[in-house]
Design a protein around this nucleic acid. Structure first.
Length: 486
RNA sequence: GCCGCUAUCGUCUAGGGGUCAGGACGGAUGGUUCUCAGCCAUCAAACCGGGGUUCGAAUCCCCGUAGCGGUACCA
């Protein structure tokens, strides 16, 4: 008989990814909930790589998972890899076989498929008919002679299994719905439902916090634990993270779009990702949206986790990310942005740091991701840009007459800026206003015409900042070029 | 097919027998400004349906419906 946890045991939780791909948003949330729960209770967070599916597990994806977790600062206190623990599982399997709680199954995949099809046609609840439970020695000899390699199945009990879930509540599972699960493959490799619950016990996990896709595995694992007389953890099944059509987020269907590492590469901040992901299914009250990690550790509580799935909304992530970016000072923002400039070949180690900081300062609160720096500031580094046709049409003019007027304005502006006494924002500003106001030219019209000449687009930071950062010579050059292009 | 879970604005959610059903993202409008972003102000937007219980139900109960998850020698 399993006994339950005593309340003053140290909390030990685990995240148990299978290394069959990158860590996605849903996995990150599972990791975070576990980690926060551990931190909140002063417990341990354990990372366990569930790689018993040797065919699909890769080293590469294992390292991707490590990287993603490290980026999020979800650090682990202990680390295990299941494929290195074969002897542990083998020992328990032996025990199960000897106690009569498990048996060898010689059914071939083809036979099983047939049995399943039959059960389905008959609208049966259970698909496997447990035929190998009562094999005669002669049957076994025959199968062995045929060269069949058996799997091992667990015998499910015929009494209801009680499951208490910290989020979903308690219920009793009808034994008639329980399958004699395969716990060891014919190649000798143990399966998830076996290894998971064994390790949870061996590693003294107190709380299993995982996605609801595992809800149906829980009674199976409890049955295995009971047969082995293992101590049971508490279970908490958290609702799934969904895409905008309401389906579970998965690597297969959503590709890179949901990969945590992808967001890092695009210039998202881990704080934003954490803050975003924690609010998927969890809330503190009706006021607070922004939480620091320390606050989360203090406030996180499974009791406030909801029961229904949450849709992954990138707009909200973007909002949080710009919030956290704007929280950073100019120097930190510059540090964060430099790799993206370098990646585009816009900046190298010789580029003047102060000038770069001034650009970042000018860009101000316009970044949603650090990656945005590239399209928003490219024109500072190169004059190799196109004039946006929509902007040109609106501000430079569609008719020859308007174009002529624009040429005139740009020419005048060029002359003014060329011989400006002191090249600073205040002087530039008053000189331009003086010109527009005295000649009865709309400020917008002059400024937008100049903006397009200097940047190719009709929007961006304060034009005075741009003029200053580009420098007198470059500004004059670009104005001359614009005039000839008009 | 079978087993299970879930159900408040488009989205994340608060509330949980008597509330103008609150907040946030997103959207719309206006203001500020050389543009965009931002900021400020304003607005639209929800209790899945039907029965009960009750003086009163979004809230409790039942029945539907819908969506999702599982149904592997994956995890």
């Amino acid at each position: 008989m399993s006994n339950t946890l005593s309340p003053n045991d140290q909390v030990r939780v685990r995240m148990a990814p299978s290394p069959t791909g990158y860590l996605h948003i849903g996995g990150a949330r599972t990791a975070l909930f576990n980690w926060l729960f551990a931190k909140h209770h002063n417990g341990k967070f354990i990372l366990r790589i569930d790689d018993t599916d040797t065919a699909r597990s890769t080293d590469e994806s294992m390292h991707e998972i490590y990287d993603a977790l490290k980026w999020l600062s979800i650090n682990w206190d202990e680390h295990y890899v299941q494929s290195e623990r074969r002897n542990v599982y083998d020992r328990y399997v032996k025990q199960l076989l000897e106690s009569g709680n498990a048996y060898h199954c010689y059914c071939t995949p083809e036979e099983l498929e047939e049995i399943r099809a039959q059960a389905r046609a008959n609208k049966q609840t259970r698909s496997y008919d447990r035929r190998c439970r009562n094999l005669t020695p002669e049957d076994v000899d025959r199968f062995v002679a045929e060269g069949r390699k058996p799997t091992v199945r667990i015998k499910m009990p015929d009494i209801p299994i009680h499951v208490n879930d910290l989020i979903l509540g308690s219920r009793n599972i009808d034994p008639a719905t329980l399958e004699d699960e395969v716990i060891v493959r014919s190649n000798g490799m143990p399966n998830y439902n076996l290894t998971s619950i064994i390790d949870d016990a061996e590693m003294q996990i107190t709380h299993v916090i995982r996605g609801t896709e595992h809800l149906n595995n829980t009674p199976k694992q409890i049955a295995i634990a009971n047969a082995l007389d293992l101590k049971l953890p508490q279970f908490a099944h958290i609702p799934l993270v969904l895409d905008d059509t309401g389906r579970k987020l998965s690597k297969r269907h959503h590709g890179d779009l949901v990969a945590v590492n992808r967001y890092r590469e695009q210039g998202y901040l881990p704080e934003a990702m954490l803050n975003f992901v924690v609010r998927l299914g969890w809330s503190y009250d009706d006021k607070q949206e922004i939480f620091s990690v320390d606050e989360l550790i203090e406030k996180f509580d499974l009791a406030r986790v909801g029961k229904s799935g949450s849709v992954f909304d990138i707009k909200k992530l973007e909002w949080l990310n710009s919030h956290y970016i704007n929280q950073l000072d100019v120097s930190a923002r510059t540090d964060a942005v430099i790799p993206f400039w370098k990646q585009e070949g816009l900046v190298d180690s010789t580029t003047n740091r102060d000038w770069l900081e001034n650009i970042v300062e000018a860009v101000g609160e316009r970044l949603t991701t650090f990656q945005d720096i590239v399209p928003q500031t490219r024109y500072f580094f190169t004059d190799d840009f196109e004039y946006e046709s929509k902007a040109v049409k609106k501000w430079w003019g569609g008719s020859d007459e308007k174009k002529q007027k624009t040429r005139e304005i740009l020419t005048n502006l060029g002359q003014i800026l060329e011989k400006i006494p002191t090249f600073d924002v205040e002087t530039i500003e008053s000189a331009i206003w003086k010109y527009t106001d005295e000649n009865d030219i709309k400020r917008v019209a002059a400024m937008q015409a100049l903006r397009i000449a200097l940047t190719g687009t009709s929007f961006g930071p304060s034009l005075f900042d741009i003029v200053l950062l580009l420098g007198q010579d470059e500004v004059f050059k670009r104005i001359q070029r614009a005039i000839t292009c008009l």
